[in-house]
Simulated assay, not measured.
Amino acid sequence: MKITTFGLDLAKQVFQLHWVEVETGEVKRRRLKRDQVLAFFAQRSASVVAMEACGSAHYWARKLIGLGHEVRLIAPKFVRPFVTSNKSDAADAQAIWETVQRPGRRFVAVKSEAQQGVLMLHRMREQLVKMRTMQINQLRGLLYEFGATLPQGRHKGMAQVPQALAQLEGTLPAMVLDALREQRARIESLSREIEHIEAQLLAWKKEDEAVKRLMDIPGVGVLTATAAVATTGQASAFRSGREFAAFLGLVPRHSGTGGTVKLLNISKRGDSYLRKLLIHGARAVLTHSKVRSSWLEALSARRTWNTVVVALANKMARTIWALLAHGRTYDRGYAAGLA
């Protein structure tokens, strides 16, 4: 029995379909409103539905899987080259349909509701951290204009703010002092919100066995572990740890011609947030670890600091994939033997 493949272009209200009827070979296109999508696919036999991995894609993927269809999510950058005419919903749906049938195509793993929820917490925390950093930097700059210098570090700097404001009471107008005190209170409020989100992630960590196993890896804390589990979706979507590291942009870019291939800097593709967490974790291991593996010592002797940090982050990513894909627990001796 031949299976029909659909190309579905997602939108907020109007969805575009493109498919070829396997019995007749007839090319068909159809526009569906939001409330018609599930009703249409409920009447079709089990099919392959391809979509771009964009906003709401995982939601629709879960709904269609529940109806018995196979869903394939494609990174938008792979679809773009197949839009050969002017861009439109119909052209996008046809490009998705053509892309999904290319051999060797990689697909994005469908995330569960819990994984998407954890990623939402990470995105909210990341934005709050950026807002807090902006507020602190502005407060530092404003106080510096009047001769008040704050020590480096968020905790030390904010601890000196009340004293700096007290010294400027006779210099600044009362309304300016009130505004600065309000900004300090705003920073403290942002810190409380960030701590609340971190407490929620810690609570999820206690319920998820995979997160607990990942936190045994040196340099992997609750933020990195929860983000890795939520971002990966299904570890089986990657054939190896190297593919997972490449997905995070922790492998070199290639440039080759005439039979000569040159390795460049890391590609920085994929999820930049998880890549940043891994690099920060690797930097912490190199800075604070008292005992290093022979592999790490040898690499540090012949490579620059940043190169060693990225290499260790790459190894951490491969280890994360191995633990998730094979259900293993971290064994320091086993990892050292591979190194």
Rank of each mutant, 00 (worst) to 15 (best):
Q183E: 04
R184W: 04
A185R: 05
A185H: 00
A185P: 01
R186Y: 06
I187S: 09
L190V: 05
S191P: 00
R192T: 12
R192F: 06
R192C: 08
R192N: 12
R192S: 13
E193S: 09
E195N: 05
E195T: 00
E195V: 00
I197R: 04
A199W: 06
A199Y: 08
L202T: 13
A203M: 09
W204G: 08
W204A: 13
W204P: 07
K206F: 01
K206A: 01
K206W: 03
E207M: 15
E207R: 15
D208M: 03
D208P: 03
E209P: 12
A210C: 05
V211S: 15
V211A: 15
V211F: 13
K212A: 11
L214M: 07
M215H: 07
I217C: 09
I217W: 08
G219Y: 00
G221T: 01
G221V: 00
V222F: 09
V222K: 06
V222C: 13
T224H: 00
A225E: 06
T226L: 10
T226I: 06
A227W: 05
V229L: 01
T231W: 08
T231Q: 11
T232G: 14
T232A: 15
G233R: 00
G233P: 03
Q234W: 14
Q234I: 10
A235Q: 09
A237W: 10
F238G: 05
F238P: 05
R239K: 08
R239N: 02
G241P: 00
F244M: 11
L248A: 12
L248E: 11
L250H: 00
V251D: 06
R253I: 01
R253M: 01
H254I: 14
G256F: 03
G256A: 00
G258V: 00
G259F: 03
G259C: 01
T260M: 00
T260R: 01
V261Y: 03
V261C: 04
K262V: 04
L263M: 06
L264G: 10
N265K: 15
I266N: 06
I266S: 06
I266Y: 05
G270D: 03
D271E: 12
Y273S: 10
Y273K: 10
L274K: 07
L274A: 02
R275H: 01
K276R: 15
K276G: 13
L278N: 03
I279Y: 07
G281Y: 08
A282P: 02
R283H: 09
A284C: 13
V285G: 11
L286G: 07
L286T: 08
H288F: 08
S289Q: 13
K290N: 09
K290A: 12
V291Y: 13
V291K: 15
S293W: 07
S294E: 15
L296N: 06
L296E: 04
E297R: 12
A298N: 13
L299M: 14
L299S: 10
S300P: 06
S300H: 12
A301M: 04
R302P: 04
R302F: 09
R303N: 13
W305Q: 13
W305N: 13
N306Q: 14
N306W: 10
T307V: 11
T307N: 14
V308S: 14
V309A: 13
V310W: 05
V310S: 01
A311Q: 07
A313P: 02
A313H: 04
R318W: 07
T319P: 05
A322F: 09
L323M: 03
L324Y: 10
